[in-house]
Structures are given as C-alpha cells and as structure tokens.
C-alpha cells in the first residue's frame, strides 16, 4: 500500500505542503499543488458521482408525467430537477481540477466512465419512486455525509449542498411509502414488491467488499474517502432496519438479525457476481440509460451551437461597433 506520509526533509516543497495539508485535516484547494494520482482519483470519483446524478434522473423521471396526484407530481418533478442540479454542482467541482464537462459527458456516453450500478435497474411501479427515495437516497446520504469532509475543498462543498437537498429526497420517499402502506392491500403489496427488488441492489451501491476494493486504501489515506465500503454498508443496514419495522415491510434477507455482541445487524452478502455484471454493462437497463443520455446530448447539439454562434456574432458586432 502506498501511504502518503509527511516527509520531514529540508525546505518545504509543494509535495510536503500537500501532505501537511492532508495530515492537518485542512482542505486542498484548486490552485494548490497536488500529486497526479490525487487529481486523477478525484476526477474519476467526482465524474462518476456526477454521471450517477444525471443518469439517476431517468428511472424516476419516467414517472413525473404519470404521478398519481398533483402534489406527488410537484415533489417528484422537483426531486428529479434537483438531481440535474447535483450533477452540475459535481461537474463544477470536477472542472476545478481541469476536467472538462463536455469531455466527461463524452466519456460517459462512450462507456469510458462509470455511474452508479443502481440506476441500471428498472422502475416497475409508482412504489419504486418511494423505495428509491428511501433506500437509494438513504444509501447516498450514508455515502455522502462523510464526503462533506473530504480533503478536496470544492468536492466537499458540493457535497454539503447535495446532502442537504437529498435529505428532502429521502423523506419524500419514506412519506410516500407510509401513505401507501395506509392505503389498499394492493398498494401494500406494491410497496413490499418494490422493497424486495431494490434491497440488494441498494446494498451493492456501497461497492464491493473492502477486501476486493484495492483503491480504497489510497483514497482513505488521502482523505478523499473517510470510511470503507463495508463500514458504510453496515451503517445503512443499521439505519434502515428500524425504519422498515415502522413501515411494516419485510427486508428480503433471512439472515438479517441484530447481533448484540457487535452492536450491529448481521446481514447476508449481496450477489457480487450480479454487481460485476451490472457494472460491466450487462445490467437490465445499461444500454437504455446511455442511449437516452446520448440522444439528449446529440439532439441538443444544434441548440448549443446556435447559442454559441449568437454569442460570437454579437461579440463581433460589439467589437466592430466600438472600432467604428
């Protein structure tokens, strides 16, 4: 393992300053010197995170036009809009590292950069909107709250804003499920069915087990990541179990039980082969998600070009007017 350490050698070079900044829990800012590995790790992680927000609009976005009440329609519309905003906050953070949004978008639609595996599962009923809010946004909050203290300043600040907005997302989901559980038998079945389908993919959102996550240690040494995948997954399970009891649904894991000794819930292992398949492009909706993103980007090119053309014509007119 390649752990950066503070080198106590001679006059402070940029490398020592960087490592000292990390050691003292200070934030690294865009114009600071940083190792190439730190920069590329961050760009990859932030870009994946941004792509996840943008692709994540799709599974729920499909239900805005069908939401069964105007109140739910407004909530869902605002939520999906927030996700576009979150994607932009994150692309903005990545751009401070010298990455370029157009390039990141090209990498997403070419399959050279990833996004969260969870968004490759289909949404089958309106209960999925609630369960996504509860599980997926809940898991995202577990992941993201520690990232508010990540060592790279712009990323941490983007996460603060994202986390605040996502707690509304989680609560609207849980509230929808509570309401549905108080409705008809058919609605209660819809909720349980959605819980059954989303539970395991949600656990996979935290990534592979620590033993199979070779880059984690370096990210943690650089304080980009603050907790391991397994720690965060445990935290999510412990948080969700009592919420499921209140809601009156069963989490689909026969091995799930409280372990008094550990002070945590024991739970079964997700199907890691499934995660590998979904991550490598073979999930139920990978092709559809990327096709939609690609179509929006390509079909929008004439609009973006028009605005650029107008801006450049106007600048020319202003220059010529000034010269005349």
């Amino acid at each position: 393992m390649n752990t950066p350490t503070v080198t106590p050698s001679g006059p402070q070079g940029p490398e020592a300053t960087f490592e000292d900044t990390i050691a003292r829990d200070q934030r690294v800012e865009p114009r600071d010197w940083m190792p190439d590995g730190y920069r590329t790790t961050l760009i990859r992680q932030i870009a994946q995170h941004a792509h996840s927000e943008i692709i994540g609009m799709q599974p729920e976005g499909e239900w805005i036009t069908r939401a069964p009440s105007l109140r739910r329609k407004a909530i869902l519309f605002a939520k999906v809009q927030d996700e576009a905003g979150h994607g932009l906050y994150l692309y903005s953070a990545a751009e401070t590292l010298g990455a370029d949004r157009t390039d990141m978008t090209a990498r997403l639609i070419d399959g050279r950069q990833k996004y969260s595996s969870i968004f490759n599962y289909p949404t089958e009923t309106f209960a999925d909107v609630g369960v996504i809010g509860w599980f997926v946004d809940g898991a995202a909050i577990c992941n993201q709250v520690p990232l508010c203290r990540t060592s790279y300043g712009p990323y941490g600040r983007a996460m603060v804003r994202v986390c605040k907005e996502e707690s509304f997302h989680q609560r609207q989901g849980y509230e929808l499920l509570l309401t549905m559980m108080g409705g008809t038998d058919e609605q209660r079945e819809m909720v349980q069915d959605a819980v059954n389908r989303w539970w395991w993919p949600s656990l996979m959102m935290f990534g592979p087990p620590d033993a199979d996550s070779p880059n984690s240690a370096r990210s943690m040494a650089w304080k980009i990541k603050r907790h391991s995948n397994d720690e965060l997954r445990q935290r999510f399970v412990d948080m969700t179990v009592p919420q499921a009891q209140k809601l009156g649904v069963t989490l689909p894991d026969p091995g799930l039980r409280w372990n008094e000794e550990r002070g945590h819930h024991d739970f079964g292992a997700p199907d890691w082969d499934e995660l590998k398949r979904v991550v490598s492009g073979d999930g139920p909706c990978n092709a559809e998600r990327i096709a939609r993103r690609r179509a929006a980007h390509e079909e929008g090119a004439w609009v973006r070009e028009a605005a650029s053309a107008h801006a450049s014509k106007r600048a020319t007119r202003v220059r010529e007017g000034a010269a005349a």
């Binding site: 036009t65 329609k73 519309f77 999906v80 576009a84 929006a296 929008g300 090119a301 973006r304």
Partner: peptide, 18 residues
C-alpha cells in the same frame, strides 16, 4: 415534464423544470 432527461443541456433541464 416530457423534456425531463431530454433537454439540450443540463442547465436547460433546470430551467424547463423550474
């Protein structure tokens, strides 16, 4: 709402949704 995830640029997603 039908534009959602189909807008020509992400900034336009925000605007049309607003």
């Amino acid at each position: 709402a039908e534009w959602c995830t189909r807008a020509p640029e992400l900034e336009e997603e925000l605007a049309l949704a607003n």
